[in-house]
Simulated assay, not measured.
Amino acid sequence: MLRRHLLAGGAALSAARSALAQNTGAAAEAYPSRAIQMVVAFPPGGQADVTARPVAAALESAFRQPVPVVNRAGAGGIVGTASVARAPADGHTALLALSSLSVLPEAERIQGRTPAYTVDQFAPIARITADPTLLVVPAGAPWQSLEEFVADARGRPGAITYGSAGNYSTLHVAMAMLTGAAGLDLLHVPFQGGGPALTALLSGTLDALASGPGPVLPHLREGRLRALACWGAQRIPGFETVPTFIERGFPEVEFYIWTGLFVPAATPEPVQARLRGALRAACEGPQLRRALEAAGSPVAYQEGEAFARFFAADNARLIRAVQRIGKVE
């Protein structure tokens, strides 16, 4: 009798697994069945938004479904990011994230708060871009070089302002690396995103900003901004006259603003695979590549184990940087 019960139970379990596999496969084949919301956790105009627009257009073409970009700003990126962590895990809500995805939960812990989300609530689809950051100032600023900027900042502690997308945002972490390495006391002015910070810089109410190349490229071309240095290991193509911090004697000052697409962790793997396949094809195609290159952020596509390794290493490095910043009052 026990043997009959075990056999019956095994058959039922096998049938349930088969039905689940069929249902999952059917769901993947039907995906997407409606619009895919691509959430950007920052206002329009910043690096995530600049990347999201052409990526969304490419996915719309691939899936023949709307892919609206939804700017859900607040708390330096926490509000929009946490909303995706809580979204239904069906592939119809995705997050176009920056490297601050790793930073914000650690910053919340340092501030004595429970994180609104954790990194393990997301499944990585792929990395899209990975830009070294640029230090930019208004064209009318007195500094013609990094050396002049550093010398002036050392002579006037707390007088030079810089903006960011919020406390512990990627732009804040990058500048904190510089101020720590160079022994500078700059006045940090947090905004609700990189777009508003850039607007403040262009209006002359800020003195400096760390930014990915994309948002500042048009203003550099128009002569409204000047780039003093970059956080990359090598000079950025198209910005060959801009030195790296490493060249100028700051070997620890290296930072990248990357963008990647994520979905809630419980999203079925076949759905993730369909989304990843469409994104891979778009990143390999000329239209998206041209759009991102024109925006100053060339494709640096990674997926699977390569992206997982990159994300884990970057996550650990950024957490160490946030811990060095410490609690922000």
Rank of each mutant, 00 (worst) to 15 (best):
G304K: 13
L261T: 04
A278M: 04
G166A: 07
E60L: 10
I128Y: 07
V263T: 06
R235D: 15
P190Q: 08
Y162H: 15
G214F: 06
A62G: 13
A282C: 06
G232H: 00
R17H: 14
V136K: 10
S83F: 01
T114H: 15
A107H: 04
A151D: 14
E240R: 07
R4H: 15
L228M: 08
S203Y: 03
A308W: 02
E293W: 02
I246D: 13
L6Q: 15
S18G: 15
T170C: 12
D314V: 11
R72S: 13
D185Q: 15
P196I: 09
R3F: 10
R64M: 09
Q37C: 10
Y117D: 08
P32K: 03
R274N: 09
I78L: 14
A266C: 10
V253E: 08
A141W: 05
P251L: 00
Q65I: 00
R248I: 02
L101F: 04
M1G: 14
P105E: 04
R127T: 01
N71C: 07
G304I: 06
I110P: 03
A210K: 08
L146H: 05
L96N: 06
A233S: 14
A87P: 11
P44V: 00
P218L: 01
A41H: 09
H172M: 01
P88E: 14
L206H: 01
P142L: 05
V50K: 05
A282S: 07
L202R: 08
S169E: 07
I325E: 05
L198N: 03
G223I: 01
R289P: 09
L318C: 06
A153M: 00
G249E: 14
A56T: 10
A229I: 04
A306P: 00
A295F: 06
Q47E: 13
L6M: 06
F307C: 11
E329V: 09
R280H: 12
T179W: 01
L101E: 00
G304D: 13
Q323V: 00
K327W: 09
T244H: 02
R3Q: 15
A15S: 04
P68G: 08
A123E: 08
R280K: 15
L279W: 13
V242N: 03
L178C: 14
L13S: 13
H219A: 14
S33H: 02
F149C: 02
V137Q: 03
T179L: 01
E106T: 15
T129E: 09
L225W: 01
A197E: 01
V50I: 11
G112R: 05
D314L: 03
A300T: 14
R224H: 14
G204I: 07
A316P: 04
P115E: 08
A265Y: 12
V136R: 07
R53T: 07
R17P: 00
T118G: 11
A12N: 03
G9L: 14
A295E: 09
E108A: 05
